[in-house]
């Protein structure tokens, strides 16, 4: 603006008219951010650290495929037990050899089914919903960790490569007996008959 009206104005004069002309330790339009040498080094290190973390997240989720739960399906929590609802008779179903789906109904203070058996190497897709309040669904020693929210169906997939007992623990406070809410998954090693049967 002042440049247009008086393009050859002495810059020193202009500075004097500027309210924000540099005052020692005060405000200034043209003061720039000063970063100490060591602080700058530190910031670069921080940047590298966060960059490596960020890359690890990207690689593990998109290349290795450790996924978070996302949007899957909604359900009216008052109709969870109605005939025709997949959660009315929850449990394990075999879809194909080695592939299963498991429907779980969470309610105060239990999971249904209480216990399932799957063979070693089974790939299980879990579908969980709640018929009352929020619950949690975490299978010990796995990456299956999901919130169970009334009105939503939570889903995650896991392949059981180690035999033994796994515990599903409710990890969201759901009332007076929350600490008693859990279920079990048994991953069975193949017996010889089953193993030979599978070969035939």
């Amino acid at each position: 603006m002042s440049e247009q009206t008086n393009p050859i104005e002495d810059p020193v004069v202009e500075e004097a008219q500027d309210q924000s002309a540099p005052v020692e330790g005060g405000l200034s339009e043209d003061a720039h951010l000063h970063i100490d040498k060591y602080e700058s080094m530190w910031l670069k290190i921080a940047f590298i650290i966060m960059g490596v973390f960020f890359l690890s997240v990207i690689v593990s989720s998109f290349a290795i495929g450790i996924q978070l739960p996302g949007a899957y399906a909604r359900i009216d929590p008052t109709t969870v037990n109605d005939p025709g609802s997949p959660f009315a008779e929850p449990g394990l179903r075999e879809l194909a050899p080695g592939k299963y789906e498991a429907y779980y109904r969470a309610q105060i203070w239990q999971f249904t089914p209480r216990e399932i058996h799957v063979p070693l190497g089974a790939e299980v897709s879990f579908y969980v919903t709640s018929q009352d309040v929020m619950h949690g669904f975490k299978i010990s020693d796995t990456n299956v960790n999901v919130m169970v929210i009334p009105g939503q169906v939570s889903t995650l997939k896991h392949t059981f490569d180690k035999p033994g007992e796994y515990k599903i623990i409710c990890h969201e406070y759901c009332g007076q007996l929350h600490h008693t809410m859990y279920a079990q998954i048994f991953v069975d090693e193949p017996t010889e008959e089953v193993a030979s049967g599978a070969q035939n």
Partner: peptide, 17 residues
């Protein structure tokens, strides 16, 4: 809410960033 159903992964990833 990373482990919440009903929120797409893309939104969760944006909040990670």
């Amino acid at each position: 809410q990373y482990t919440d159903p009903g929120i797409p992964q893309a939104w969760k990833f944006l909040h990670t960033t």
